[in-house]
């Protein structure tokens, strides 16, 4: 079966020089979702950018798995707030123009 959107985690580990246990820990804490097919584990290619970010946080900043979870939650909140601020700015502009 062809799986063009999925990447084998062993390939990821080889490419980024990381331990397979790191990927499994990320999966256990719910930070990434792995797909199992014929006893092999894969990650969806859309999630690679997030995974790269997690690897950088871990390697460059020594952030542990729980820390990465906290960081991602806060970044999501930040993004949500930014969108809210943007929507409010547009609303304000709407009333200013009226």
């Amino acid at each position: 079966m062809d799986k063009p959107d999925l990447i084998l985690i062993e390939t990821i580990c080889f490419h980024y020089k990381i331990e397979i246990s790191f990927i499994k820990d990320l999966e256990n804490i719910g930070l990434i979702k792995l797909v199992t097919f014929e006893n092999n584990k894969f990650i969806h290619q859309d999630k690679i950018s997030d995974l790269e970010k997690m690897i950088r946080l871990h390697h460059e900043l020594n952030v542990n798995i729980e820390g990465i979870d906290v960081v991602f939650n806060l970044l999501q909140q930040q993004l949500k707030l930014k969108e809210e601020v943007n929507a409010l700015k547009n609303k304000l502009q709407f009333y200013k123009n009226n």
Binding site: L57, E60, L61, V63, V71, L75, Q78, L79
Partner: peptide, 14 residues
């Protein structure tokens, strides 16, 4: 360096 990198890392300051 580590302390400042944690503060200003681009992944933490999109």
């Amino acid at each position: 360096y580590r302390k400042l990198a944690r503060k200003y890392h681009p992944d933490l300051n999109p």
